[in-house]
Design a protein around this nucleic acid. Sequence first.
DNA 1: TCCAAGTCAATATG
DNA 2: CATATTGACTTGGA
Length: 479
Amino acid sequence: APESPMSSSESVKSLTELVQQPCPAIETSKDGKPQESSEPPVSESQSTTPLPLSGHSALSIQELVAVSPELDTYGITKRVKEVLTDNNLGQRLFGETILGLTQGSVSDLLARPKPWHKLSLKGREPFVRMQLWLNDPNNVEKLMDMKRMEKKAYMKRRHSSVSDSQPCEPSSVGIDYSQGASPQPQHQLKKPRVVLAPEEKEALKRAYQQKPYPSPKTIEELATQLNLKTSTVINWFHNYRSRIRRELFIEEIQAGSQSQAGSSDSPSARSSRAVHSSEGDSCDGVDTEGPPEGKQSGLEADEYSNATTKSQGGQAESAFEAGEEVPQDARSSEKTESFHLGMESLEDTDDEGRLKAPRQSSPPGSQSSGETLETMPNSATEEDASTSAASTSVLTGESSFKSKESSEKMLSVPSTSSTLAAGSQKANSIQSLFSFSEAASSKNTRDNTLRKKKAANLNNIIHRLEKAASREEPVEWEF
DNA sequence: TCCAAGTCAATATG
DNA sequence: CATATTGACTTGGA
């Protein structure tokens, strides 16, 4: 049922109201629909999958999501967080019983909700559930009950016996699949869980800045140079890209208000190769860090930066440096670009010369092959004449300063999608929606630290939105 | 196949 | 204990 253009009005309507976020809480009752909120009673029809929750007719959630009006994801998470903390309810419990998600996912969702229009149907589900839960007058009580029960069960288990539980309680959730089974006997095949060293992450980030979408060849190279599995590098890029994207969305949400002005960036601003990030600047105080050292090393947040670049749309572009293959110059020994993941001298200071841990490189022990260590000790490979330098030279900026990081910054504007596809006013309206407006004079507006970044990415975001809009999403977001 | 979006689940932190 | 982070896996689309 992908959409049926207006359809059963009433049922849709009642459902819609059910979800409605504004709070009123008033009536709405009467629902023509039988479902409702509570589920205390019996029936737990489990639908196909083991997905718990919200009982009632299985399919409902998805249907609800399909007809749900736009929800304020940020507002919802904010309220959920409040309710949870006020009542001392944990994310784990909430996630498992209300959303059907694990603690980590809940944490992520609550901390970084994506705007409604950027969510897929699946991604909207948790928000609809949260809204439903917020609307349920007994929500807290129910969770508290669950908590109690869980505790009870736990005590019992640890205390005496075995037996099992399942006595009372409404709701279902048969959580607990015990874990009995052997603690740790056999399988040592438990993958160790790769943990990238800070230096490795740094190197990857640098590589990302040069090329957010590395070619297989490049990936292979990176993997080799860092001594990581290819899949790890691939996964890292996927994850990093998507997490950066999310950060940007966040800013979008929070900036509900004004967004600085200025920023030239007119269409067609070519990216600047630039690397510099010098920055520093003050303004905006905000911590500004002081002594990098001291107790805790800061390592602050902003982390991700710069945008994703992808020019799709017209192929004209020429994008920017990074040459991809086909660099116009730089031929000579094609070289296939090699990044020297910087790391050069840096190090200095700190660190113990870490040698990273046991990466499993080759399963079958016998490290004969040779290379084994090497890796971190400064620089490691690198070079080879890298004539191609022309572009790749970017590596590392910075350095020479105390701590590391801060290498970021470097906005690369996707250069507005040239010619917005089909002029369509829709695009315009959307654009205007985002781009600030009034408040021209504005005075202070301090705080734009990353606002810049945001502005740079705006185009990219718009581009994507537009792309998405062109197809699919028959309804929704227009005004 | 690649990619993006969602998640999981092990670990890190607090 | 709880919450936050993050590499890997899963799903769904081209």
